[in-house]
Design a protein around this nucleic acid. Structure first.
Length: 565
RNA sequence: CGGGAUGUAGCGCAGCCUGGUAAGCGCGCCUGCCCCGGGAGCAGGAGGUCGUGGGUUCAAAUCCCACCAUCCCGACCA
């Protein structure tokens, strides 16, 4: 492709809208263009990467016999009404009516459609297991799109669905799919972790996420470097760091005027946040409870709900607390609160001589100790881990990392086949519900994740399998333009995906653009050619230069691109 | 949906406080010359409903009100 004729523009500055380096680089390199919040066009260069990723996906999915198809983006509402999600999905599901007044939705996911399709097509166990997938635009009217294509409203997704005879077959397909995902993400040049995850509104029981490590990611995970344990923060088990055993000191009242928050109290008393005991009140259907956790940790309400076996769990309002306890939040503590259920986090039990509210205005207690000064009703893990907390399995210190969710696996079971009455006949001639799994990859989001992990101060560094072009031929002046064209033709003829920078610009501009866009090999036709009759090949990632004779270029480039893969 | 911020040329910004001088700068774009190994130089040029609507005023990019859009934090989220 001649660059002068390619829809291609780079800029030195990125829009002020971009916060993440991947977003900035995608805009600067001219991969995408925004039209509304979370709505993007993929320009030719960006689209080439999407196409490359798609073909890696297709290649790997093919290995396990998954079949590609294309389902409608516009979905009739009646299937959604049957599954119950017409009401339950929330405002992310865009609903509208056609000219006849029939309800439709823009597809945010395709369980209903595919289940209906398979229900109509498959009636015998002999045709199972069956795995189908598509790569298609999804629309979710997100509350807050962010990070460019990291969380867009319209985005490209690969979604696969498996239909099995029974649970065992589902588990076997699921495991194969997990292997496929691992190979896809590795080929895309990604550093990722597999973590246990919640199933959310999709439903089902078992679920794992693939998280690409990135400081700009929205998801937090804990990683144990020692034994490899990884989990989403909200699901993570952990043990608080063991404190040195201190002698229990006598409890003592101190005046703490206007010091309410953990930060204020720790500053006022010159202690660490972890020396403070937080008391948070929740209203439940079983009455008001007090939840106790160490000052440096946060309460995980999902864990708390499970531990208490309650449905309703709401932070108690200031007025209610004042009425019940007789003091405003900030000065509450567990001592003397025996008539309420006291739920203590493990962190509280592992610490001695904590600072807690005295249930009196502007007053705290020093040296409060669980077991001696108050008796917790229930003790358990109800917090989020912090970096430095211990792995539940090997007791090593764990780290909290951020990442971008790039893939998600679900064992759905019979959730959709039951609601849509999708059955097949088993060996005994009886009707069974399909046992389903579904498996997603955020294809457009992968672009951002890959760039997050593969860039430097100059720009993007594309991994070899998904680079939009493998090489760019750069003549450094008019004198070498013709030779450059010959080389470009030669490379093209030999199947090397090549750009030819025929623009009338200074060499520096061309080098910088090539680096910004991240082309793995620059083929430079300049002084070295004029003086030494050699062409330079310079690599993007390592900036290594080798000099090659003109007639050897295509052969050498073929070798280099093969090696890179 | 709560908190914070921003809307002036394709992009990045100044002007606004203190209304009138003035629609201005840099990048990019077009023409010509000159350059050509890491974002050159000179000369000329095109490009604007100052987010939208209303109000105040002799006069509004500038002051006031409402709305819209966008971004960030949070909540939310296959």
């Amino acid at each position: 492709m001649r660059l002068s004729q390619y829809l291609f523009s780079t800029s030195k500055e990125s829009s002020k809208e971009a916060e993440y380096s991947s977003h900035k680089l995608m805009l600067r390199a001219g991969l995408i263009k925004k039209f509304a919040a979370g709505i993007y066009s993929y320009l030719p260069l960006g689209y080439r990467v999407l196409a490359k990723i798609s073909s890696v996906i297709e290649d790997e999915m093919d290995h396990i016999g998954a079949q590609r198809l294309l389902l409608p983006f516009l979905q009739p509402a009646h299937l959604w009404k049957k599954s119950g999600r017409w009401r339950n999905y929330g405002k992310e599901l865009v609903r509208f009516q056609d000219r006849k007044g029939a309800d439709f939705a823009l597809g945010p996911t395709h369980e209903e459609i595919i289940t209906q399709l398979v229900k109509e097509e498959i009636s015998s166990y002999k045709r199972l297991p069956l795995t189908l997938y598509q790569i298609q635009t999804k629309f979710r009217d997100e509350l807050r799109p962010r990070g460019g294509v990291i969380r867009a409203r319209e985005f490209l997704m690969k979604d696969a669905y498996s239909f099995c005879r029974n649970k065992e077959e589902l588990i076997s397909v699921y495991q194969k799919m997990k292997g496929v995902y691992e190979r896809i993400f590795s080929r895309c040049g990604l550093n990722y972790k597999v973590v246990e995850a919640d199933t959310g509104p999709i439903g089902g029981k078992v679920s794992e996420e693939f998280i690409a490590l990135a400081s700009s990611g929205e998801d937090k995970i804990v990683v144990c470097k020692h034994c490899g344990y990884t989990a989403k923060l909200e699901k993570a088990e952990y043990e608080p760091l063991e404190e040195a055993q201190n002698e229990l000191k006598a409890m003592k009242e101190v005046s703490t005027p206007n010091a309410r928050t953990v930060q204020e109290v720790s500053q006022f008393l010159h202690c660490r946040p972890r020396d403070i005991l937080k008391t948070i009140f929740y209203q439940t259907e079983k009455g008001l409870i007090a939840v106790l956790i160490r000052g440096d940790h946060q309460i995980n309400e999902a864990k708390l709900k499970t531990l208490l076996k309650v449905k309703k769990l709401e932070i108690a309002g200031n007025n209610l607390i004042k009425e019940e306890i007789g003091v405003e939040p900030g000065f509450t503590g567990p001592v003397g609160l025996d008539k309420y259920r006291l739920i203590a986090d493990n962190t509280v039990m592992r610490s001695q001589n904590l600072v807690a509210g005295a249930n009196r205005k502007d007053t705290h207690l020093l040296n409060v100790n669980a077991g001696r000064d108050f008796q917790p009703t229930i003790i358990g893990d109800i917090g989020f881990p912090l970096s430095g907390d211990m792995c539940p399995f090997c007791k090593s210190r764990m780290e909290v990392r951020r990442g971008i969710e790039i893939g998600h696996l679900f064992q759905l079971g019979e959730v959709y086949s039951r609601s849509l009455k999708a059955t097949f006949l088993n060996e005994k001639g009886e009707e069974d519900y399909f046992v389903m799994g579904c498996y997603g990859i955020g294809v457009s989001r992968l672009l951002a994740a890959i760039i997050e992990q593969n860039h430097d101060s100059q720009g993007v560094i594309w991994p070899p399998e998904i680079t939009p072009f493998q090489a760019i031929v750069i003549p450094t002046s008019e004198k070498t333009l013709k030779v450059a064209e010959d080389i470009y033709q030669d490379l093209k003829d030999h199947g090397v995906e090549t750009l030819w920078d025929d623009r009338d610009l200074s060499a520096g501009v061309k080098f910088n653009d090539a680096d910004l866009v991240g082309i793995p090999f620059k083929v430079i036709v300049g002084d070295t050619f004029l003086k030494e009759d050699r062409i330079e090949i310079k690599t993007r990632r390592e900036a290594k230069i080798e000099k090659v004779r003109k007639n050897m270029i295509s052969q050498r480039m073929k070798e280099l691109t093969q090696d890179a893969k």
